[in-house]
Design a protein around this nucleic acid. Structure first.
Lengths: 208, 208
DNA sequence: TTTAGACGGTGAACGGTGTTCACACTATCC
DNA sequence: GGATAGTGTGAACACCGTTCACCGTCTAAA
């Protein structure tokens, strides 16, 4: 009786279709400008159908975010693995990978890190999922930071604090470069290199 | 014949009323959640009236942003002035002021620094105004960085590069804290302090 | 083979949104 | 007094996210 399985598979396929359509539209037109009706049009179903698969519009965005986080996670692991000997080098490479990932997939990056899904006050159950996936991806960096500290490659301090501050730093460049393409920025590569340099220097064990 | 003047004054007063009502609502409920009808209700006029004073909803927010960022400029000047002796202290205080300002006015911060200019949409005279305001704010930081370098308070390097990297850093914390309120961040004050610490340490003249 | 039920999909509607426009009203000027 | 300019508005338009009664179809038990 493979019926149940087939049904489940078909359901999953339509869900995939919705997500793909939504991602493409979000990327092209921005979250706010994409209506449920437009997504429905694209997959040639009625708007109401989407609600059988997703609780609401925000949940679609949420799923897309989850996927993006996963891809970034993989990229960072690969980068770290490449530098498996030196923890500090791995950390640097990881941070660089993060920035490049954002610049290469600005649309995904915006969706995941730059859109506020919920109003900025009032706890949201949904926020938790996005936050949790983010945390998982963020774990990569935390682990590298910890290793660096243990090996004395960077100054000793609170691991969480340090990791988050570093994240803020690399998010900053990425976000600015994506958001303000018209701003007279210094040449992109130079800005990235300098930012990484400052951050790494800021956590180096040398000096006071 | 003070009629013209009185009319102009009255017009200006209603414009002010609209802006004040809008600001209060935007801050409390967020830009997206505030409708023109709600603003109109608050000032006890019809929704259509607002369009005599503002081209559209965006223009209201735009005006508010201009006002807000003028205030940031002033705040930073004050902070710098307070530390007039020490350029490095002034720079630190300026960066801190920037972050706090963003967190206190998330709606305005988002609009000016976190929304991507839609490149394919039509002409955008409005964009120019926004960009100019941003640039002016950034000028404050550049000047402080230059002074610090001249006084040997920070390591010698390209002023523009350094300023932009620092900006990226403080933008990073601000943006993350605004965008991901559900993320398990370390206590806000600690994160801010640590970020500033890393950035300042990253440009310090000591060591290699 | 028939039948009851579960379920995917939908048209229509609800209550909202930003924005426009013809029109009323009023205060000013000739 | 009458023409005029300009402020304020009700009603409408074209959307939006979301819900729900309902319609088929396909499955599983009788």
């Amino acid at each position: 009786m493979g019926v149940t399985e087939r049904k489940a598979r078909e359901k999953e396929e339509l869900k995939r279709q919705i997500l793909d359509a939504a991602r493409e539209l979000f990327v092209r037109d921005g979250y706010e400008s994409v209506s449920m009706r437009k997504i429905a049009d694209k997959i040639e179903y009625s708007p109401a159908t989407i609600y059988t698969y997703f609780k609401d519009k925000d949940e679609i965005l949420d799923c897309l975010c989850e996927e993006t986080f996963l891809k970034l996670h993989v990229d960072k692991l690969a980068a770290a693995h490449q530098m498996k000997g030196d923890a500090l080098q791995a950390l640097k490479k990881g941070m660089e990978t993060y920035i490049r990932f954002g610049l290469e997939h600005p649309e995904h990056y915006i969706v995941t890190f730059m859109l506020r899904a919920a109003p900025y006050h009032g706890p949201r159950a949904r926020e938790t999922r996005k936050a949790k996936t983010g945390q998982q991806c963020f774990d990569d960096m935390r682990n590298l930071v910890r290793r660096c500290m243990e090996e004395g490659k960077i100054m000793k301090a609170d691991v969480e604090e340090t990791s988050q501050a570093l994240w803020a730093g690399i998010h900053g460049v990425t976000a600015l470069l994506i958001t303000l393409p018209g701003f007279p920025f210094v040449e992109r590569e130079r800005l990235i290199r300098r930012t990484l340099e400052i951050l790494v220097r800021g956590i180096s064990p040398h000096g006071k």
